[in-house]
Simulated scan of single mutants.
Amino acid sequence: MNITTKWRIHLFAGLAERLGTRLLEVAFPEARLEAGEIKRRLAERYPEQADLIAVSFVARNQAFAADDAFVGREDELALLPPVSGGMPEEAENEAAARREADRYAILEDTLDTAAVLSAVSHPDHGAALLFVGTTREWTGGKRTVTLEYEAYLPMARAALKTIGEEIGERWPGTLCAIHHRIGTVGIGEASVLIAVSAPHRAGGYEASRYAIERLKMTVPIWKKEVYEDGTAWQGHQLGPWDPLATPDAEGGRR
Rank of each mutant, 00 (worst) to 15 (best):
V71H: 07
R73Q: 12
E74N: 14
A78R: 00
L79S: 01
P82D: 15
V83F: 12
G85C: 10
G86E: 09
M87F: 11
M87L: 12
A91W: 13
E92N: 15
N93M: 15
N93V: 14
E94P: 10
E94H: 12
R98C: 06
R98G: 03
D102I: 11
R103Q: 08
R103K: 05
Y104V: 04
D109I: 09
D109V: 09
L111F: 02
D112S: 07
A114C: 10
V120H: 01
S121C: 04
H122C: 03
D124R: 08
D124W: 12
G126N: 06
L129N: 02
F131W: 13
G133R: 07
G133P: 08
T134S: 08
T135F: 05
T135L: 06
R136L: 12
G140P: 09
K142L: 11
V145K: 05
T146D: 10
E148F: 14
Y149W: 03
Y149I: 00
Y152S: 06
P154F: 05
P154G: 03
M155Y: 03
K161C: 11
K161D: 03
G164K: 02
G168Y: 06
E169G: 06
R170C: 11
W171P: 00
P172D: 07
T174G: 02
L175Q: 04
C176M: 08
A177G: 05
